[in-house]
Write a protein that binds this DNA or RNA. Sequence first.
DNA 1: ACCTAACCATACCGGTCGGTATACTTGCAG
DNA 2: CTGCAAGTATACCGACCGGTATGGTTAGGT
Lengths: 203, 203
Amino acid sequence: MTTITQPRMTPTAIRILETAEGLFYAHGLRAVGVERIADEAGTTKKTIYDRFGSKDGLITAYLRQRCDRWHSHATSYVEEHEPEPSRARVLAVLDALDSWMAVNRRGCGFVNAYAELAGTGHNGLSIIAEEKIWTRDYYIGLLTELGVPDPGPRGRELALVHEGAIVQLTAGAQPEAMADARELMRRLIDDGVAAEEAPATWG
Amino acid sequence: MTTITQPRMTPTAIRILETAEGLFYAHGLRAVGVERIADEAGTTKKTIYDRFGSKDGLITAYLRQRCDRWHSHATSYVEEHEPEPSRARVLAVLDALDSWMAVNRRGCGFVNAYAELAGTGHNGLSIIAEEKIWTRDYYIGLLTELGVPDPGPRGRELALVHEGAIVQLTAGAQPEAMADARELMRRLIDDGVAAEEAPATWG
DNA sequence: ACCTAACCATACCGGTCGGTATACTTGCAG
DNA sequence: CTGCAAGTATACCGACCGGTATGGTTAGGT
């Protein structure tokens, strides 16, 4: 097996990666063979192995790319809809998720990948954890902007609700999950802001 | 393919199912072949197909069994530790999850199965959704016991946090997730109870 | 003119997959 | 005594898996 840490992203490599992202997300990692990716990308297995070294290398690149895509979707959505620090800006992250899930109807691609990779020593596992931490820290950052006290624990709570919503919406087949999460997050953000306006004086 | 809806649970079938549960959870559905299950269960593929009809049939039986196992773990844990209606009794569901996750260190088996089955028309998908709804309704039931107003939305919120905790703990590699979830749920339950003690008079 | 990177086409490798077929043994119920 | 259900053992099937080998084409840089 040839190990390729930094794939050279030639035009064909980009096409391969885009096809792989679609197929891996839609059907799962093991369910999709390298040959199928080659066919649907209009290339050959040879080129895939030349660029990515192995299927595991391709999976790692897939996770990295999907990570980037979610980050840029979330930040650009928030920046576009709520450019100024506010409670609505924090809530906009969940709206970004909502619009993301409208197109990604098969749950969280990272959780799904975790389901197939956990226990193996696969490189992709660290990317998965990285993504969960990024989203959590994104919430924390927006709360910090707002001057909410204890933004760490408060942001981590929002992230819990965020992740729970995805699971209940998809695996749980509960269409109301996103609205539930929004209502709960709205309340949690309000409480956090209230704690700032009236800091604890009774303790 | 022979379809078997109601497997006859002979002693060997029980052994097969127990082995399958361990392997499917530990490695994933597609990662485990029927032959390996047969070997580790000390039987043959023939017997597996005689009892369960197909690998999909075995997967369905696995999900059904795991569902039952979680339900009985949760209820017996709650009944044992907090037999009387109380806030602690609601919180005990999360404690039950905590003790469950101490042994099941590869995330939620149902979410993991969803990751591999979503999109296919697999029978198991309904069992997965069923489990998520059962846990949600378990929370709702315990809040109803407590006389909390609006137990439906309140219980759904607790379930969101519950599911989020599993994801952050495993895929997110965040050890503090369970403690975060506990603290948040404690607050949410307190708020719900407070709403009961001082019912809305300002609206 | 020459080299090299990128790519395509195809055939091949050993191994594993889900699933089936055949034939034999065991134990119990009528 | 017989029949049947349950289980073992083993060989087999076509399909697909990840990965490699070989050889040829094209285009850009020097």
